[in-house]
Design a protein around this nucleic acid. Structure first.
Length: 552
RNA sequence: GCGCCUGUAGCUCAGUUGGAUAGAGCAACGGACUUCUAAUCCGUAGGUCGCACGUUCGAGUCGUGCCAGGCGCGCCA
């Protein structure tokens, strides 16, 4: 972007000062250039005077004044000034911004995508709910965050895989089978004791009903019956999960089965590696992982004294498998209640010979649903949770996804169902979508007035001289650094915040300035601005997975 | 007891990785539709950034210690 020009202006000033001896040639110059949050401060701001002050043993203010004098000569610069205790604020010539708009319009929105990843392969694992019950609202949040993060990383130069991991080798699915088995007996009129540690939700009754209605032949022996029902019930629930995800707009490249780790021998390979490196050791008849070689955490069991592997072992193997599939960076998105598990997994990655930075975590905090101003209780055990589907049916996909992306993922989220349902100004989703529709409406009117809106390439952007117009251009190009920051920090929520700010400036402009006017050249220039702006809004909404309506 | 997360306007939350006079939405109050969509805009009001020290030119941001809330600490899955 234009940041490199900004850097050039400063560096020219510094070099000039160095030639005259005001700054020694060996001065350290690790200054930063930032865009001040206060608009009146100009396009860019630098702290270079503060960095030089201790080296030159001079006041920052004096250094700033000296540099400003030298920067004023630059023909790239519109204005330069010293502010505060020694900040240097400066703005670029409007023509530079106008040219940037023109470039963006002709090269497309993709030209604003930063290349953060350099083609690196990233695997994002998310949702990964076991098929023992429908997805609840918390899974939905994880799904939205993971999906948008995947979109974001792909746009910023990463090769992205999306994966859903299923613990099918453990006991949970068998517990589901047993639950279904007992509900089935109930349906047949038998009185049964239904233990607390089985799945309590009504969906188990529905599954049992389905088994009966479909006339499925259940073996007479209890264990055989449970075998069959485990498979039946879990695959049925998995279908439901995939269906919900599809409706939510989330697609996975791969559903990875825990059992496949055993079939392919990766588990054995993992244990062999850990043994060989002296990271696994025997104690009390069990095999342990020596965690504290890498992280501050307790040692953990890999193989129990009864010979069974723990989940930890499959998880290490799973991550080894991810690396073996040539993924360089792994992102695991977990419910925040699993955070205690992070140190050991981080340790295991290092045990496999990788850097701890190669595995990154995103924790998803709980969602509290608010209805009629009061929290809706939810507890998996009692079966009274709100499913993703219920929320989806109630508020729709756009509002649902947008709301999930309005918070940092590791912060609690209060999801106000009534607000999300409202088609009014209180609902932030519409604020952004409305801007898109409004611009579309301008174009409809333009075409009706006989303006050729397909051919705006020749428009004279030099006519866009209003403060608001230059400001809009700056905000459009800022998409670049927003994507960059969001991708680096794995914070997809930044995109929704940016969209709100961008669109706010549009609405304000729209109310103040007419795009379609008597001056044909000016109208064309403004249409080009609107078209580019609309492109960014559409692109941003697409990233979040929310529709960009042409009419509202 | 130990560890992680959170604490910012009445409410819900941002805060550009240490920058300037801490921001937005909602709620409240007052204005703007004969002109491209009023699902919008303009204005007013609202603060001990949980508390206290420390690090430095500079702290909502980093460190230490408290306070409050949430979560986690098994040869469970």
């Amino acid at each position: 972007m234009l940041r490199s020009i900004a850097a050039k202006i400063i560096n020219n000033g510094i070099e000039d000062a160095q030639r005259s001896g005001s700054i020694p040639p060996d001065a350290r110059l690790n200054f930063i250039i930032e865009t001040p949050r206060e608009e009146g401060f100009g396009d860019y701001s630098t702290n270079v005077a503060f960095i030089l002050a201790p080296q030159l043993k001079k006041k920052p203010l004096d250094i700033a004044n000296m540099l400003v004098e030298r920067m004023q000569g630059s023909d790239l610069c519109q204005s330069v000034a010293v502010a505060g205790a020694g900040f240097i604020n400066f703005s670029l010539r409007g023509a530079l911004w106008q040219q940037l708009l023109k470039d963006t319009a002709s090269k497309g929105i993709e030209s604003l995508y930063p290349n953060v990843g350099g083609g690196r392969k990233v695997l994002i694992e998310f949702v990964s709910a076991n098929p023992t019950g429908p997805l609840h609202i918390g899974h939905g949040r994880g799904a939205a965050v993971g999906d948008v993060l995947a979109n974001l990383l792909r746009k910023t130069g990463h090769t992205v895989g999306r994966e859903y991991y299923i613990n099918d080798a453990g006991r949970q699915i068998r517990t589901l089978g047993r639950s279904t088995f007992l509900r089935l007996k109930e349906l047949k009129g038998e009185t049964v004791e239904y233990p607390q540690d089985l799945y309590q939700g009504d969906y188990v009754r529905e599954l049992a009903r389905k088994v009966m209605d479909e006339g499925i032949a259940v073996p007479a022996g209890e264990e055989e019956a449970i075998d069959l029902l485990s498979v039946y019930a879990s695959s049925h629930i998995m279908e439901g999960i995939k269906n919900d995800l599809r409706e939510f707009g989330v697609a996975f490249d791969n559903y990875f089965l825990e059992s496949s780790l055993y079939a392919s021998g990766v588990v054995d390979e993992t244990l062999a590696i850990l043994r060989e490196r002296g990271i696994a050791f025997e104690r009390d008849g069990a095999l342990w992982f020596k965690t504290d070689l890498f992280e501050k955490d307790e040692d953990r069991v890999l193989v129990k004294s009864d010979g069974e592997n723990t989940y930890f072992t499959s998880d290490i193997a799973y991550h080894l498998d991810k690396f073996k599939r040539s993924y360089e960076v792994l992102v695991d998105i977990w419910g925040s209640d699993h955070h205690g598990y992070i140190p050991r997994l981080r340790a295991s990655v290092q045990a496999l010979g990788r850097n701890k930075e190669d595995l990154r975590f995103l924790l998803i905090q709980f969602v509290t649903l608010i209805k009629d101003g009061k929290p809706v209780g939810m507890s998996t055990r009692s079966g009274e949770f709100t499913t993703l589907r219920e929320v989806l049916d109630e508020v729709g996909r756009d509002a649902c996804r947008y709301f999930f992306l309005m918070r940092k993922s590791d912060a609690h989220l209060e999801f106000d169902l009534d607000l999300a349902k409202k088609t009014s100004n209180e609902n932030p989703v519409y604020y952004v979508q409305y801007a898109h529709a409004r611009i579309e409406s301008i174009f409809r009117n333009a075409r009706e007035a006989g303006i050729n809106t397909d051919d705006l390439a020749g428009a004279d952007c030099g006519l866009l001289t209003l403060k608001e117009e230059l400001d809009l251009i700056r905000w459009i190009t800022r998409y670049h650094s927003v994507l960059e920051g969001a991708a680096r920090s794995l914070e997809p929520h930044r995109v929704t915040f940016y969209l709100m700010e961008l669109v706010g400036r549009f609405h304000s402009y729209y109310n103040k300035t007419r795009v379609l006017g008597n001056d044909a050249a000016l109208t064309r220039a403004r249409l080009l601005l609107m078209s580019t702006l609309q492109g960014v809004i559409r692109d941003g909404l697409g990233l979040v997975g929310v529709s960009a309506p042409e009419k509202m």
